[in-house]
Amino acid sequence: MNEKIKKHILDLSVVRMCELSPGYFEIHLISACGTIPEMHPGQFVQVRVDGSPETFLRRPISVNLLTVDHTELWLLVHAVGAGTKALACLNEGHTLNLVGPLGNGFTLPSSDEYDTHPLLVGGGVGTAPLLFLGQELSQRGIRPTFLLGGKRKSDIMQLEHFQLLGDVALTTEDGSVGERGFVTQHSIWHTDAFTQVYTCGPKPMMVNVARIAHEQKIPCEASLENMMACGLGACLCCVEDTVEGNLCVCSEGPVFDTSKLKWI
């Protein structure tokens, strides 16, 4: 369905930049023409980072949120290396060049599935696409449950936005907020019944989430973060070994049904 969403080369300007916790930045972008083109939760953009020979290629970043009125695009960036650190240094008024939206997003339940109870499991900056997904589910009258995890309290971001969209369960490894441990150890897996799991975060976390979902016979979709060059399905650098052979994460993902992946 979202394969038909048109791709664009966009110059957007930064209207707001905030450091949510050390190293994590929320960037709000607007378009000179007023509206941002259509995007689907789980899709990403390829961001151009100017300024250094070391950041030659574009950086793939998930769509964190496209506001309901299409006026703002949000990115959530974890500054880990040269490229993401350069993004963290942007100021209001700066222009950012993006290619997107790219890839296939999460499969949304059709609106006649009233008994839908999705669980959205995110770790660290992997929670980024889940906010947009939560908004889209909520728009369709579905109340999602979010299970968010991190090493410590400061790794859990945008909590106030998630709480507006659904129920939120938390875990931290140091126990500073929510249950102590990993998302896969949270009691909610035993107390609630879910019809669909969506996950994004570090690969070991997603593999374990997929295992639990599989044991409980719940369909599961995961968003992968393989290293990319083109982001368009042209270079074949980003492949994941799947039951259908090597598939491009950028064009055939980044969201995959985990039954297709060789994880379990």
């Binding site: 020979p53 070391e54 030659f56 290629l57 290293m227 270079c235 650098c237 980003c238 492949v239 070994d241």
Partner: peptide, 10 residues
């Protein structure tokens, strides 16, 4: 097999 790409200066 993956990884098939490494970014280098320029």
């Amino acid at each position: 097999p993956y990884p098939r790409m490494a970014e280098t200066a320029h």
